[in-house]
Nucleic acid binder design. Structure first.
Length: 268
DNA sequence: CGGGGCTCCTGTGCGC
DNA sequence: TGCGCACAGGAGCCCC
């Protein structure tokens, strides 16, 4: 699923390829995808506009437009942003003067597109917790976020208002790397374990970023290419297979309604 | 206030 | 072989 590394990959690619391209027109093929603006109004706003700046917060992709307003994308489970030929199967298509298109696709219909005048007004982003890889973030801050909580650690890591950008894949991977059971209660995690977890999260996210994310389902980058980190996943999707460290059969449980794979031997 | 459970949705893959 | 159903999950919401 698109998490921080996947969204950041797309952000960098849009920044590299699409800044200042003039928008000729916009086609909207879904009534659900635009969350707070009508198709007609949206089309009017977009014609002759262009992308000025591409920002990411958590799993949100934010595009600052020439006129100072913002597009906010959320890919949810199966959203795709692909720059290339016109693709009529898309929910929203931005047609540029250079003849190319940005196709916003989504098989499942969860993806969202917002249009806002100011980021201050956009609550979902205001509520987000800090970014693990932010320069301002630190182990001390991480520890203070988890140490008082009675929640199981894995669902806690996925709470966007606690830490932004982590989803079902990278929470499982980081917990495996840190040797911590996903079902451990957060406030029972020791200082040293928390340190391991913090380092594991950074390691997993940085590594996934290098590989342009994980294409376990429909995720592709701006070029329509798969992320190569899926081959390096150690627990996600490997239920029943041998642990890569100790050969123990990996187990799958349900935590807060989400499938969770772990090694019952390596993770304590 | 926190946590569990339900909901949105549709393609996929498995079992009968 | 083919059909039908469970399952996949980000995040908001409701309820206890």
């Amino acid at each position: 699923m698109p998490e921080m590394p996947e969204v950041e990959t797309i952000r960098r690619q849009i920044e590299e390829k699409m800044i200042n391209l003039k928008i000729k027109s916009v086609e909207v093929n879904s009534v659900r995808i635009l969350k707070n603006i009508s198709s007609q109004e949206f089309q009017k706003e977009m014609v002759n506009n262009s992308f000025k700046e591409v920002i990411r917060r958590g799993k949100y992709l934010i595009i600052k437009l020439k006129n100072g307003k913002y597009l906010i994308f959320h890919l949810k489970l199966t959203g795709q942003l692909i720059y290339g030929e016109f693709d009529s199967d898309s929910k929203v298509i931005f047609l540029f003067e250079n003849g190319k298109c940005l196709n916003f696709k989504d098989k499942r219909g969860f993806a969202e597109l917002w249009f806002v005048s100011s980021l201050q007004d956009f609550l979902p982003i205001k509520k987000l917790g800090p970014e693990i890889l932010d320069k301002e973030f630190s182990f001390e801050k991480f520890y203070s976020l988890i140490s008082g909580k009675k929640t199981k650690i894995k669902p806690l890591l996925m709470k966007q208002d606690v830490i932004a950008g982590i989803g079902n894949i990278y929470s499982q991977e980081a917990l495996f790397l840190a040797g911590i059971l996903p079902s451990r209660i957060a406030n029972q995690i020791t200082f040293d374990e928390a340190k391991k977890l913090y380092n594991s999260l950074k390691e997993v996210l940085l590594s996934a970023l290098q590989y342009h994310g994980s294409s376990v389902d429909t995720y592709v980058d701006l070029n329509g290419e798969k992320g190569k980190y899926a081959d390096l996943l150690k627990v996600y999707g490997r239920e029943g297979q041998p642990c890569l460290k100790c050969k123990t059969k990996l187990k799958k449980i349900d935590l807060a309604g989400r499938g969770t794979v772990f090694c019952p031997h390596c993770q304590k």
